[in-house]
Structure formats: structure tokens, C-alpha cells
């Protein structure tokens, strides 16, 4: 059985300043509904890779194809800027490590969730309100907070709001950059639980960048291990973690177990 590929990176390469190779020879596919984790230390190039996939940084070589409406795949970096923005808007959601990067702090929680829907053309206040309330509930933000500014929210609640904002337009692909990074451990657990059930429920394909192998084990079906800009090991998440092959992956797993 082959599942539809919603995102495909081929020969992806990004170099900074002509010398520093942030990522190279990246090839992978993300299938509909699966969760893929990208693990590695900071500086391993995983965030740069995510930026190339999210349309935030142009790769120096290679292609990023994403499935748009109708299932057809387009090469993100061959599109002109406007078409790229449109493709990304409808197909892809991005969750930043810091919720402040993904939210607009000057507008209400409801406005934050509803904005992407307005961008995509919903022009009915009552409907926007309904969808916003529904999403607040799904991410466990009390309905009565709908008109409050996110700056009055706790870190965990801000992160949940950011997730609601990125999922509300119904993307097929969700990219998450260290989504639990800045949160307390107890808050992390709740967020992971929520992410796990949302991703399963919505059938969205998720790519989650994390240095936390516990997060990877809990959420990911498959893992890619990155070292110095390259994918050095890939496979089933539990297999990579329980039977790591590459020396670096063994070190990474061993260091996790010591904690």
C-alpha cells in the first residue's frame, strides 16, 4: 500500500556565506497522515532544513515539492513568490518554537485563529467566530478567553493557541520546530498529548524538529537523524531509538538514557 506523498525534498542543499554547509543531500518524503521526527543536536541543520521546507529560506540546490489542493505536487522554489505564498497558505502550517514568532500579540486569541481563514477568503463573522471557538476548545484554551490578547496567556497556552492558528485553515502538512522547547516539563506533557491526538484525528502529515528524543519517541512514526547538515540515519522511530546503527545515533540515544 502506498500512501500519497504530501511533501518531498530532493537533493536539498543550503550553504551560508558560501562555506558553511547548513544542510546537504537531503532526500526524504512525508506521506499523508504520518509523523516524521528530525532529531539532532543544535547546529545539525535541522532548523535550516525546516526553513527551506516552510518557504522561509531558499535552498541553494534541490527541490521541495508539496501537495496542493487536488493532490497535485508543486515545486515550491520554482513558483513565483505570490504562487508560493498561496501554495504554502493552503497546504502548510508552521509552528515555531517561540509562540511569539507565530502569533500576533496585538490581536485577540480569536483574531489569531481566524486570520488565516480570512486570508483564505472566509467573509462571515459568525462563522469565523464559531471556528475560532471550536479551535480554542480543541487546544484547551477556555472559550471565554477568545477576546483576550495572547500576551496575557501562559507560555503553554500561547503555544496551544499557535497550534490552533496553524491548523485552523486545514493544512495537509504541519511543520513544528521544537514545539515544546521553551516549556516546563509538566506543560510539555500536556502539549505532546494534545499534538498527538490532534495529528491522529486530523490525519495531517507532521514533520517535527526536536532535539528531545522523548518527544520523538512519543510523536513520530519515523525518524531522520541529522549530523552536520546531513541525514545519517533514517527509519522507524522505535527501531532507530532501540537499535541505532550509526555511531552518532548510538551516542545520541545513550546520552538520552543517562538522563
Amino acid at each position: 500500500m502506498s500512501r500519497a506523498v504530501v511533501l518531498r525534498a530532493s537533493g536539498l542543499r543550503k550553504v551560508f556565506g558560501g562555506r558553511v554547509v547548513a544542510c546537504a543531500d537531503i532526500d526524504f518524503e512525508l506521506a499523508a497522515g504520518e509523523v516524521v521526527g528530525i532529531v539532532g543536536e543544535s547546529g545539525s541543520g535541522k532548523s535550516t532544513l525546516l526553513r527551506c521546507l516552510a518557504g522561509l529560506a531558499a535552498p541553494d540546490a534541490g527541490t521541495v515539492e508539496i501537495a496542493i489542493d487536488g493532490g497535485e505536487r508543486v515545486d515550491l522554489w520554482q513558483l513565483d513568490e505570490v504562487a508560493r505564498a498561496q501554495a504554502l497558505r493552503s497546504a502548510l502550517g508552521l509552528v515555531h518554537q517561540n509562540p511569539r514568532d507565530g502569533l500576533k500579540l496585538g490581536i485577540s486569541a480569536g483574531g489569531n485563529v481566524a486570520e488565516p481563514l480570512m486570508v483564505s477568503g472566509i467573509r462571515h463573522y459568525g462563522r469565523l467566530r464559531e471556528v475560532a471557538l471550536d479551535w480554542l476548545e480543541r487546544v484547551e484554551v477556555p472559550r471565554r478567553r477568545i477576546d483576550d490578547l495572547p500576551s496575557t496567556f501562559s507560555g503553554g497556552m500561547q503555544q496551544r493557541l499557535q497550534i490552533a492558528r496553524s491548523l485552523a485553515p486545514g493544512p495537509r502538512i504541519l511543520l513544528l520546530d521544537e514545539p515544546t522547547g521553551g516549556l516546563d516539563v509538566s506543560v510539555q506533557a500536556r502539549l505532546l498529548d494534545l499534538l498527538r491526538s490532534l495529528v491522529r484525528e486530523l490525519g495531517v502529515a507532521a514533520l517535527i524538529v526536536t532535539h528531545d528524543l522523548g518527544v520523538a519517541r512519543l510523536l513520530a512514526d519515523r525518524l531522520l537523524v541529522m549530523l552536520r547538515g546531513r541525514v545519517i540515519e533514517a527509519g522507524l522511530a522505535d527501531q532507530v531509538l532501540d537499535d541505532p546503527q550509526a555511531p552518532y545515533t548510538q551516542k545520541l540515544v545513550a546520552s538520552m538514557l543517562r538522563i
Partner: peptide, 12 residues
């Protein structure tokens, strides 16, 4: 979208 958000916030 930002302009519609302004309208949304006003109505809210």
C-alpha cells in the same frame, strides 16, 4: 487578512 482582522476585532 490583517485588514479583515481589524474589522473582526472591532466587531468582537
Amino acid at each position: 487578512g490583517v485588514m479583515y482582522v481589524k474589522l473582526y476585532e472591532d466587531i468582537a
